[in-house]
Write a protein that binds this DNA or RNA. Structure first.
Lengths: 159, 159
DNA sequence: CATGTAATGTTATACTATAACATATAGGAA
DNA sequence: TTCCTATATGTTATAGTATAACATTACATG
């Protein structure tokens, strides 16, 4: 279970993220409802991106809703408020590892084990900023996704 | 019609790109068939990304095929051989402006006029390379897309 | 011409996402 | 409390994107 492709205490990690989301919602008058909270939990459980319909089938088995709009609305909320990101390359969703901070996230996606790691990127932000500035372009959103092999899967490939 | 958000002779630009694709295919024993060539032309005509079904409806009206696999196969060929890129954020496709060169393209997508500009990025490539290296991650493909406003549309917004 | 490979044709279906409208629920104002 | 309003959820239907699987054709080469 790598994050940044290293081991970590994932139970704590989930708790921290949930608590942080709760605090943030309370502060900003946002409602972290049952469905929204559960979707965030599901996204936090693994460092993999989940498809909307994967999430929906879990919600369905838990009696939290069975139709697509249920999950898409919850995902919209989480993404709009910075608690999750959409991984465009996978048409899937992933919990945000650095909520609360303005950031241009870089995702490293392992094509073999499907782990998704979100990297911090101040320098990259600056770099893209100056590239765009040179072209006179105003940045509103960025999508930066790297697909490849994580350290563990590189070793596995050799075998 | 901006490229890099500036004016340019687009007729020449299309011709150059087509000729370059032909040469490249001849060199590498690839077949630039009627459908593939036409799809590339369509992508070159505008600096906008086209959806697969937009392209398909044109192909259909020209008697070149009416079913989705026709266009998806042509797009797969063009993307696999570096003549076009997929814009993940838009689920759409765009001709490559720098074919033949290994590159990690950066797309600037104007949300207002839908123009797509592909920027050159050696420094960015190096930057991502070192980021990934630090994490032990092996890069295979990169998706870098910036959504925002082009110079012209920024002016228009103010009005 | 025979043969094999690559490309195209065709049918069906899977996967992703949203529109539109109905209902329920929470929190504030009277 | 009661009403009101804004927000969230429930439900049905449908739009948009993409591929699996298999049949047929075209074409380069021995």
């Amino acid at each position: 279970m790598p994050i940044g492709f290293e081991q970590h205490d994932h139970t704590t990690c989930i708790q921290t993220a949930l608590t942080s989301a709760e605090t943030c919602c309370a502060d900003e008058g946002l409602q972290l409802t049952k469905v929204r909270r559960r979707v965030l939990e599901l996204l936090l459980v693994e460092h993999k991106a989940l498809g909307a319909y994967d999430i929906l089938s879990t919600l369905n088995s838990e009696g939290l809703g069975s139709q697509p709009p249920i999950v898409y609305r919850a995902l919209d909320f989480l993404v709009a408020n910075g608690f999750a990101h959409k991984i465009e390359k996978l048409n899937a969703y992933s919990a945000c590892c650095h909520p609360g901070k303005a950031h241009a996230p870089v995702f490293m996606i392992c094509r073999a084990c499907k782990y998704v790691v979100e990297a911090q990127t101040e320098p990259l932000r600056n770099f893209l900023g100056s590239t765009a500035k040179a072209a006179g372009f105003l940045i509103e959103r960025t999508v930066i996704e790297i697909e490849g092999l994580c350290p563990a899967c590189q070793k596995a490939e050799v075998l």
